[in-house]
Amino acid sequence: MDFQIALLLGQDGLTNGAIYALLALALVLVFAVTRVIFIPQGEFVAYGALTLAALQAGKVPATLWLVLALGAAVTAIDSAQALRHGATRRLPRIIAVNLVAPLLLWLLLTSVDLVGLPLIGQIALALAIVVPLGPMLYRLAYQPIAEASVLMLLIVSVAVHVVLIGLGLLFFGAEGTRTPAFTEGTLDLGATTLQYQTLWILASSAVLIVALYAFFGRTIYGKALRATALNRTGARLMGISTTMAGKLSFTLAALIGAFSGILISPVTTLYYDSGFLIGLKGFVGAIIGGLVSYPVAAAGALLVGFLESYSSFYASAYKEVIVFTLIIPVLLWRSLTSHHSEEEE
């Protein structure tokens, strides 16, 4: 291996690692706030990319029907609850957010020329369709059992993952798609060339990570999420709604997932089921951070990216084995170094 190959592999590892890092952060966020191991995280990657591809093909993406259906279900459940408690004042808001907003989106999609829209408009539309799925899924699948054990929440996660994969095949078909790059072309750096899209991925990941940092450190909502993560009961006593915290963390996770998908779909072909493996690699990163530490999770995800890239050069047949075997020494090390406090579950 000469210097140039090492450089190219490093660049590839960094690009993949940046995406894994974003997903690892989302996984840590969701787990810290709601104790849910969010296996369907990867599905948002695929949904984001494939929804954008459908928009670019001039079709109304089938994910919209899912948003409408879930929105109707949430409206029905929340309205019934509100009526039972006599809180009719809450009704207009429930209906506006879960029913009227998706319908308006539908109207917008059918009235504008999707193909002729600039890329940024298409991306905004794709995100507007996919991101609401996050809080809606939380409301329907997780909120009713928010106080259940981690294991039960994990089992529900598996179920949601399987359902979303099945729907993905139904919505998008078995074949994959690619979307055009944000900026076409490559940058010549002498020793190596760099696709502009790679720069986009790295820059967007960095901006998102800094934005999350600022969100948690400086905004009231971010602080509320952190408080909930530290101590649910304590946060509730301070007047922080854990339901709000759960929905917000799922919204962020869906946003990060869908945007990651949109970022990488110009450099690789994405399928209805590719999200799972990408999410799993982010999960390995999150595990390295013990599902609590954001910086360690991001660093772990970058490590996964590099390991993947270099092992694909040396032993391509064993690449996945090498990447996922990483989790064993990490778990061993974590179980030896961290002291256990037997919490009641």
Binding site: I5, L8, L9, D12, T15, N16, I19, I264, V267, T268, L270, Y271, D273, S274, F276, L277, I278, E308, S309, Y310, S311, S312, F313, Y314, S316, A317, K319, E320
Partner: peptide
Amino acid sequence: NERFNRADTSVTGQVLKIIA
């Protein structure tokens, strides 16, 4: 003689080895 996975998002390593 290289391998890749159906779900892989990158085959840069394998391709570099082939080109070499």
